[in-house]
């Protein structure tokens, strides 16, 4: 690694003040499991690093009815995976966070970092988009909130502005008669990166029809993608095997995969069909209770 100046501010206000004062060329450090690899191997040479290590109140994972789940940007993947409220109320977050890297990586890495690194294959992104999460971003101008669906702008690119830091991820309260599921495909079971992934989240009305459907596809476009055609097909209908098949086929047309060393474009399209069908089936089963 090349040398850089290191800052470990004790508060968020101090962190954003450093970013403003020092200007471009800085990187914010949470767990470091992506940033250090980029600095060692991929030519990322920050002039300075602002570590969130010493910032108080960024490592929390709290749930409160009416306020939803709040994940501090410095909370580790393990902090999230092992949190009782997350396990009980947001199993889809546990499923996806548990797929990131190894135990060693989960003990260092953060959900916040997984989001801000903005890899198209980031496992925690599709479920959080499907759940309608909101990001609380801070700069020296104060805080602002942004739906996570609007956060990703390209591979490794986000709506974070110069001098802005992700402080919290807020996930709305779980809805009654709702269910979600996430699945990715990797050739190996552990320590791999998704060839393709899908998150499905549905809410059922009292008459059994789908009142709300979100299907988010990972690793088949420059950012996680909304399968809008598939979502529209579901709303207002009673879920059936045939409807799920049709939605899965529609999701394929929403995908924009490329061919690379992990898989060809056509293979990824096939995977999206299978993963959408499976996750949608499980989401509906869990919504029916």
């Amino acid at each position: 690694m090349r040398a850089f100046a290191y800052h470990a501010p004790a508060s968020l206000a101090e962190a954003v003040a450093i970013l403003r004062r020092e200007g471009p060329g800085g990187r914010v450090l949470a767990g470091g499991t992506d940033l250090l690899v980029q600095m060692k191997e991929r030519g990322t040479v920050p002039r300075y690093v602002v570590s969130l290590r010493a910032v108080a109140d960024l490592s929390h994972v709290t749930f409160q009815t009416g306020r939803g789940l709040v994940i501090g940007s410095r909370a580790s993947l393990t902090d999230v995976i092992t949190n009782r409220d997350v396990r009980e109320r947001y199993p889809i977050i546990v499923e996806s966070a548990g797929l990131v890297g190894s135990h060693q990586i989960q003990n260092l890495g953060t959900v916040g970092g997984n989001i801000c690194n903005a890899s198209p294959s980031a496992d925690t992104a599709p479920p959080l988009i499907a759940l309608g999460a909101i990001l609380r971003l801070h700069s020296d101008q104060g805080p602002r909130e942004l739906p996570i669906a609007e956060f990703f702008t390209g591979p490794g690119r986000t709506a974070l502005e110069e001098g802005e830091v992700l402080a919290e991820i807020i996930v709305p309260d779980p809805q009654p008669h709702s269910g979600g599921s996430y699945e990715r495909y990797t050739p190996r079971q552990e320590m791999d990166i998704a060839v393709a992934s899908a998150a499905s989240f549905v809410i059922l009305a009292p008459d059994g029809t789908v009142s709300h459907a979100k299907i988010i596809l990972g690793a088949v476009g420059p950012t996680p993608l909304h399968a809008r055609a598939a979502e529209a097909m579901l709303v207002g209908k009673i879920p059936s095997g045939g409807l799920i098949e049709a939605a899965a086929s529609a999701a394929v047309s929403d995908a924009r995969p490329i061919s690379d060393q992990r898989g060809s474009e056509s293979y990824r399209r096939h995977l999206i069909n299978v993963l959408t069908r499976r996750t949608l089936t499980r989401a509906i089963e869990s919504a029916r209770g």
Binding site: A8, T33, V49, S51, T78, S102, Q104
Partner: peptide, 21 residues
């Protein structure tokens, strides 16, 4: 390079030295 930090296994190659403070 796995070591325990506060009892949890981590990759010590991905921890900046000052982060161990």
């Amino acid at each position: 390079c796995t070591v325990l930090i506060d009892g949890r296994p981590v990759n010590s190659c991905l921890v900046l030295a000052p982060e161990a403070e």
